[in-house]
Amino acid sequence: MAKRIEVSGLHAYYGGTHAIEDISMTVEPRSVTAFIGPSGCGKSTFLRTLNRMHEVIPGARVEGKVMLDDEDLYGPSVDPVAVRRTVGMVFQRPNPFPTMSIYDNVAAGLKLNGVRRKSQLDEIVEGSLKGANLWEEVKDRLGKPGAGLSGGQQQRLCIARAIAVQPQVLLMDEPCSALDPISTLAIEDLIAKLKDQYTIVIVTHNMQQAARVSDRTAFFNIAGTGKPGKLIEIDDTSKIFTNPEQKATEDYITGRFG
């Protein structure tokens, strides 16, 4: 059920600010693609254009094309709500619904989509929590508030919530930046497991993480403050980290700037 993403000529703006400029790339299905680059280079902004979350910020807009297999996410008849169900997202900080139980958090998206039967909900909640490697830790306290879990568990709960609606693509915006190393490892293991089923795009500040989890890596950069972010190059992760085409990429990888 994973799909290929093909982006062409994409620009994003915040009000009058040109945030990212003319990005074109292909994201392969059933693989992990990592976005790396210095702060403010637009990688998170670009990620958010892939499920139309960019436009929920007041004054933000997008130009260009994002094809999910053969459908344009920005096509005139496309409802952003449907896009976000198809392209799931995990945020930098874990954000479970604070007033809901663990169970209800995972079931939230399903209930929106009209799944009402208890047995079906139970089945999918269990499956999603297992898929997020969280089931064993929470199966005895599904009725407890999600906010009571540790940071790493909360983040896996958010991943379970995202995959419960069976998206085609899973976007992750620095999912480990607020977590300790052990929780980070758990999430990375999970990403490796999930890529068998989903197209995964992950933004990360951590180059080792990109090298560990991704198949392909895209490097973003800005020419200077106030300038729009650009895609410098995208290639197999091994190639980017050993023999990149661009000088700027090599400088960044080797820690000469950024």
């Binding site: 896009v83 998206g109 958010c158």
Partner: peptide, 20 residues
């Protein structure tokens, strides 16, 4: 974060209000 959590799940505006 709560608002975006709901929207990213594919919630309509009303559903976002109800959830978050």
């Amino acid at each position: 974060a709560h608002v975006e959590a709901a929207l990213a799940l594919g919630a309509t505006r009303w559903e976002m209000i109800r959830l978050s």
